[in-house]
Simulated scan of single mutants.
Amino acid sequence: MDHDLAAPDGPGGVRERIEVVYGELSPLERTVADFVLEHLSELATYSGAELAQEAGASKATVSRFFRRLGFPSFAQARAQARAQASALRARGVPLGGLPPQAGNAVAAHLAQDQRNLAALARDVEHVRLERAAQLLAGARRVLLLGWRNSYPVALHLREQLLQARAAVDVGPHPGQTVAEELTGLERRDALVVVAFRRRPPAVGRVLAAAREAEVPTVLLTDPTGRALGAQVEHCFTVPVDGPGAFDGYAAAMSLVTMLAEAVLARRGRAGRERIEQVGRVHARLGELE
């Protein structure tokens, strides 16, 4: 976890306030302070009584401690922590998580995946999907770019597209920059940028460079990247919310499958022949069971 982002850090946050007054705290207050510092990302989930019990202090000590920090009450400190955690989680920062007492974690994850898939179904129109597929099926070359958690999604789309057509690349490769990949792309080619939240600033610059070079571009992103869609011809917004600390990519992988299926259908006989050719080479090399 990025410690500089962990709620409720930052200006006026609990960590900062503790650091200012730590030397002035009583031994019991320091016990509470140490516990809070070790459980900052979970602070919003505690009641005052629960925090006192877990920290091994009285409710009065907890109340006095937060007043020393400048909060009228623990409730206000918790509200600030909850608001900061919510804002950071919306950006994809892995905070909190599902506590052991949350119940059936599997059910929670599946329920959220279903909500994400339902939202994707409402957003992805058949016509838009077909237009993007037509671009990817007919382009001279397809380049897919993805960073961080977006890279596996881009890689998976590349492996699916390779079944239907040749000349599909993915980047950036480890230890390499993007400029070499973008150089030479033109309007006969296609660029797919996978940019889910916590993406690097390079994404916007890549989209701008592709637009300047008149390279048709498909963007796969989440709602926080919707503004980037103004720079591309085809934009698909995919929810990646998870019930706990981490994002879920079930909807993203489903979109990849739909897009690859549509490309294969567009390729027609050429796509079927390539699948057969790939199958024969697999058999010759003995790569698959």
Rank of each mutant, 00 (worst) to 15 (best):
M1T: 08
D2S: 08
A6H: 07
A6L: 09
A7L: 03
G10V: 15
G12K: 11
G13T: 14
R17N: 07
R17K: 13
R17G: 06
E19W: 12
E19L: 09
V21M: 05
V21F: 11
E24G: 08
R30Y: 06
R30I: 03
A33Q: 05
F35C: 13
V36C: 05
E38G: 13
S41H: 14
S41D: 15
L43W: 01
A44T: 03
Y46L: 12
Y46N: 06
G48W: 00
G48R: 11
A49F: 07
E50K: 12
S58V: 04
K59T: 12
T61N: 14
V62W: 02
R64P: 01
R67E: 15
R68P: 00
R68V: 10
F71W: 12
F74Y: 14
Q80A: 10
R82N: 15
A83W: 15
Q84P: 00
A85H: 04
S86I: 05
L88I: 13
R89S: 14
R91P: 00
R91V: 14
G92H: 01
L95W: 08
G97P: 02
P99S: 06
P99K: 14
Q101G: 10
G103L: 15
N104S: 12
A108Q: 12
L110R: 11
A111D: 10
D113V: 00
A119L: 05
L120T: 12
A121F: 01
E125D: 05
V127P: 06
R128H: 11
L129K: 08
E130V: 11
G138K: 15
R140D: 15
L143V: 15
L144P: 02
L145K: 03
P152F: 01
A154S: 14
H156S: 13
L161S: 10
Q163A: 12
V168I: 12
D169N: 14
G171I: 05
G175K: 11
G175R: 06
Q176W: 05
V178W: 05
A179C: 11
L182I: 09
L182Y: 06
R187V: 12
R187S: 13
D189I: 13
A195N: 03
P201W: 07
L207S: 03
E212W: 10
A213Y: 02
E214R: 06
V215A: 07
P216T: 13
P216V: 11
T217S: 13
L220P: 01
G225L: 01
L228D: 04
G229P: 03
A230C: 05
V232S: 02
E233I: 12
H234N: 09
H234M: 09
P239Y: 02
G242I: 03
P243H: 04
G244W: 07
D247M: 07
Y249I: 04
A251T: 11
L255H: 02
G268I: 15
A270R: 15
A270V: 15
E273N: 10
I275G: 02
V278F: 05
R280Y: 07
V281K: 09
R284W: 06
